[in-house]
Amino acid sequence: MKGMSLIVKTISDFVVGFIIIFGAYIVLYGHLTPGGGFAGGVIIASAFILLMLAHGKDVAFSKLGERAAHILDSAGALAFLLIGWVGVVGGYFFMNVFGRGEQFRLLSSGMILPGNIAIAFKVASSLFLVFSALAVFRRRSFRSMIEGELR
């Protein structure tokens, strides 16, 4: 994938930052408004997918390397599991041991916020990996198809 035209590249460069900020907002306010870790993670992943569509695989991987994405993928899930373990302090798995805080404030409702952040990392990196894996697949199978036709 070489990327698309100059117009697409410029515009996508311009919006990618905003998309990521919007995704982060959805994640951080997931316990107060509609949204949460999964929805925000999908939005963040879509920013990287946009980069990949507009500029090609190499530019996208220079922003978020494949190896880094793999590590983030596992780390997000492990962080969520760890949050579950923290609850054991209170007697039960996934018990909300942090303070509930004041209603309608960002730092409230205990471990839902860290849980959302962990899930967002997991979802963003794994969706990005799924998309890149399918993109690589497509290129390779396309080549093999052409070779098959030449033979």
């Binding site: 793999h70 590590i71 899930a77 492990l78 599991l81 373990w85 798995f93």
Partner: peptide, 24 residues
């Protein structure tokens, strides 16, 4: 502590740790 949730937590933790550590 009750061991019941460990039957899910241990394999799940291993499943996510393996690909991460597998890099190195």
């Amino acid at each position: 502590m009750n061991p019941v949730p460990l039957f899910v937590a241990i394999p799940l933790g291993a499943a996510f740790l393996i690909p991460m550590l597998g890099i190195w």
